[in-house]
Simulated assay, not measured.
Amino acid sequence: MEWIVLVIVGLIASSLGSLIGMGGGIIVVPALLYLATLPEFSHLTPQVVVGTSLFTMIFTGLSSTLAYMKIKTVDYKSGLIFLIGSGPGSILGAWITEKLDLHSFNLYFGLFIIFVSFVLLVKDKLKPLPFRKDKGVVRQFTDNIGRNFEYGFNPIMAVLISFVVGFLSGIFGIGGGSLMVPTMIILFFFPPHVAVATSMFMILPTAILSSITHIALGNVNWLYALALVPGAWMGAKVGVFLNTKLKSKTIVWIIRVILIIVGIRLIYQGITG
């Protein structure tokens, strides 16, 4: 029964995560924290939850990246620049996780996902900042209906921002896309579909680096990871398919509501626990 529950969690989280570039960890981590309150999963600690989530993100990232490569929406060059920051940040975040107890983790993670839900609420209402072509990298993209987009960023600013995103990813095991996608759209003018695909491309190496750190610290439950991986692999492909067929606004609204409810619950546990 435990395995069935975990496969379903991996499938749902990965489907929603790859649909909007979040990676799925923002759903896997709260789900595992909730399961940890049940007798069958009571041995799960925040560190093991994060380590196991990040390990499954490797397969979500790989599956999503392969699918997005086929429809040619991944900006590899920009993704590699962002990784200069997010890679070291994710390692540092994984190390910092060791210092948090259950109640502190619940409180900080609850506050974080409330913030993420706010970002998702306002990201469609914010306009990109003025873009100066002489200040950094300039990229162009033509979508599948022939629309042309021009976007770009300052490489130094991109590395610094992605370091912070990688750091938060390593601490909370959420893949980083929940912050990186809005950042790409608002600050760096990325077309939404390119932002999502590039975010999933970045999640793969970031998750690998964070997972290596967590494996070394003994923070991966291998049996649970093996149960989550099949759902994560299949769910990522489902999410990519939906990304090409649907407007994601309805899904984003559902995720906002879920995140707010889960965030309030975790903050309550962290304060009263």
Rank of each mutant, 00 (worst) to 15 (best):
I4W: 06
L11M: 10
M22W: 09
G23A: 02
P30F: 06
L33T: 03
L35T: 05
T37C: 10
T37H: 09
L38H: 11
P39K: 10
P39Y: 09
H43F: 12
T45W: 10
V50Y: 07
L54Y: 00
F55G: 07
L62G: 09
S64A: 15
K70Q: 15
I71D: 13
T73L: 12
T73H: 14
V74Y: 11
D75P: 14
G79Y: 10
L80V: 15
F82I: 03
G85S: 06
S86G: 05
G87H: 01
G87T: 15
G93Y: 02
E98V: 13
K99P: 05
L100D: 07
H103I: 00
L107Y: 07
Y108Q: 05
L111Y: 13
F112C: 12
F112N: 08
F112V: 10
I113R: 11
I113H: 11
F118Y: 14
V119K: 11
V119M: 12
L120D: 08
L121W: 14
V122R: 13
P128S: 04
P130H: 01
P130A: 08
F131S: 01
V137F: 15
V137K: 12
V138K: 06
R139F: 13
R139V: 05
F141R: 07
N148T: 08
G152A: 04
P155Y: 07
L160I: 13
F163R: 03
V164K: 01
M180I: 12
P182Q: 13
P182Y: 02
L187M: 15
P191M: 06
H193D: 15
A195V: 02
V196Y: 03
A197Q: 07
M200D: 11
L204M: 15
L204K: 04
P205R: 03
A207W: 00
A207K: 00
A207V: 00
I208W: 04
L217S: 14
G218I: 13
N219V: 11
V220P: 02
W222M: 13
L223R: 13
Y224K: 10
L226D: 02
P230W: 14
A232P: 07
A236Q: 11
A236T: 02
V238I: 15
V238D: 07
K245D: 11
L246Y: 14
L246K: 13
S248C: 03
S248F: 00
V252W: 00
W253G: 14
I254W: 09
I254F: 06
I258Y: 15
I258K: 05
L259W: 04
I264D: 09
R265W: 01
Y268C: 03
G270F: 08
